[in-house]
Computed example of a mutant assay.
Amino acid sequence: MAGAGRMTPAPLRLASRDLMVGVLPAKGSDIVEIIDQRTGVDLMFRTPWAAWDTPSTAVWDSRSRWLSTYRGGWQVLCPNAGPERAVNGALWGFHGEASVVPWRIVHAAETEAVLQTCLHTAPVSLRRHLSVDGAVLSVLEEVTNLSDREREVMWVHHPAFGAPLVAEGARLYTGARTLVADADAPGTVLTPDSVHTWPFVSGADGRTLDLSVLPGPTSHREIFGCLTDFERPYLAVVNQELDLAVTVSWDAKVFPHAWLWQEFCATEDYPWFRRAYALAVEPASTMPGTGTVAGLRRGEPLRLAPHETRSAHLTMTVSSAEGAVSQFRQRGSAAAGEISVSNQ
């Protein structure tokens, strides 16, 4: 999309000896790059139009507008995630207002930053403290109900990883025990609403696949579903060839699910045109969709009491591949994040 818009503003950068993290306060407080200083690898997925801000067009739906400025990286989705919907007289756009509006920089230093925003489509404010310490990125985030009645929101973190970390033969580890395929758009492999024991799935063609082993871009595979029933809340992408691994951990009390998105150059038409090679495991308050499946209720929101603040802590740790695998063998997962609930 070169020439289609203006250049993306420079990110706010946080750095330690081991990591360099780029954040865009002007657009959703997106974490657009996480660079491992040892290898020089940017862990995050980048869209083909990552360097450009394409002007929104009024006739587009909210999904198209969101995608037009999506660079990849790591977003926070609130008060909505997934398709747009009408709530309390407002239209909650695709993937929610928090991921597209500007955030105010409250504090910024070499290794940490505090950012905040208040939403218009829901009486909700968000505040996040980002910090890097060695090879660990910490995200401490608060969501506050500003009104005097209970409010329901969706709260999802959307980190998407790309090449060269994501590569043929790399492995995906997670503490989930169950994968539920999406009811409407499960991708090229899964049957809608099918339930599988992670990591083995029965494909629509009857073959069994191990989803923990990542295929290359020529696989043209797409998967969308929800990981749930976590023994331990974590994900890890391990690339033995690069001797590189990334582990994300969180607390399942706020994020009991994780949306799984694999787009391995599968979508022939808009928006990817087979140009996207991405993997995302997204800690989520809510299962995508509506209705029930396997005794689980899709679309169950996070409920905030009047003036309640809910906070959650996520961590991302970058390590050697062997170091990550040794940790799994010894402890079964990375250490979980922390969570607290308070009323103001």
Rank of each mutant, 00 (worst) to 15 (best):
L43R: 04
L91E: 12
T47K: 00
Y70D: 09
P55V: 08
V101P: 02
P102Y: 11
V87D: 03
E84V: 02
P123S: 08
T57R: 15
V100A: 09
A81W: 09
P48F: 04
A113H: 05
A108N: 10
A122G: 02
C78Q: 08
E110L: 10
S125E: 00
A122W: 00
G72K: 11
A98R: 01
F94A: 05
P123C: 04
R71A: 12
A81G: 08
R63A: 12
S62F: 07
L119T: 00
Y70K: 01
P123T: 03
M44L: 13
V87H: 06
A51D: 15
H120P: 05
T69N: 14
E110V: 12
R46K: 13
V132L: 10
C118F: 01
P55W: 10
V132Y: 10
G73K: 07
D53K: 10
T57S: 15
I35P: 04
C78E: 06
E110G: 12
V100I: 15
P102V: 11
E84A: 13
G93W: 07
C78R: 06
Q75H: 14
F94D: 05
T111P: 00
R128N: 04
P48L: 01
Q75P: 09
D53R: 15
T39R: 05
H120L: 14
I35K: 08
R128E: 05
W60C: 07
V87F: 08
V100H: 01
R46W: 14
A122C: 03
S64L: 12
C78F: 08
F45E: 07
V32T: 14
G96S: 04
L67R: 10
P79W: 02
L77W: 10
G40S: 03
E110W: 11
A108I: 07
V100C: 07
V132S: 11
P123M: 05
V114L: 01
S64T: 13
W60N: 11
N88S: 10
S64D: 13
